[in-house]
Amino acid sequence: MAEDFLHDYRKAWSFMIDLDHVSKQYEKGLAAVDELSLHVDKGEFVFVVGDSGSGKSTMIRLLLKELEPTSGIITVNGRVLNTMRHGQIPKYRRSIGTVFQDFRLLEEMTVYENVAFAMHAVEAPGRLIKKRVPQVLHEVGLSEKYRSLPRQLSGGEQQRVAIARAIVNSPQILLADEPTGNLDPRNAFEIMKLIEQINHSGTTVLVVTHNKELVNQFQKRVIMMRNGTIARDVEEGGYIEA
């Protein structure tokens, strides 16, 4: 019995993301995530698809430790989130880059400042910031626009800034919640290529999306969620309607 228990936890630590029978019930009593079990390996690229209200965003928020699970165990890169103290959360979140559908850029800051802000926020040394920010802006193809304000950029460019900000601290995991939701097909494809490129450099990627074309084009692992649990989990799959 004890050996099985230890075996399960050793296994959980070997994954980059491990959700073990995780449920999250909001106050109204409805379970947004219901007995969800999911494993994501280091360096994997996973699409999470599903209708609105299927529990995708709750899962992202649980992984960011914005929410506490009602039951179940969440382990990320060997750290059990359930027992993590408030003071340990900042250090944990530094290992995760996050990209949102609405970009969430700071409007009064330039492209450079938006990206540098993420490094200031983790108290990186000034000279490292000066070196790293131009490097990342080059990677996302925005070297020329470092002095622009977000409102002077196209949607695709704004999302590139958001991606640059997410990866500037070299996270081990990139969580992208509908990163192409506000973009036209061409920009959406380019953003997904960029995310794939980041994945190729070793970062584990979890992309929540509704974009069927992209899911079908990229042929990655696809997890379909329905009613807070996994309805389908396919390697190199496509987007199949529920």
Partner: peptide
């Protein structure tokens, strides 16, 4: 954003 990035 600061909190999500990992600011103390």
């Amino acid at each position: 954003i600061m909190k999500l990035i990992g600011s103390t």
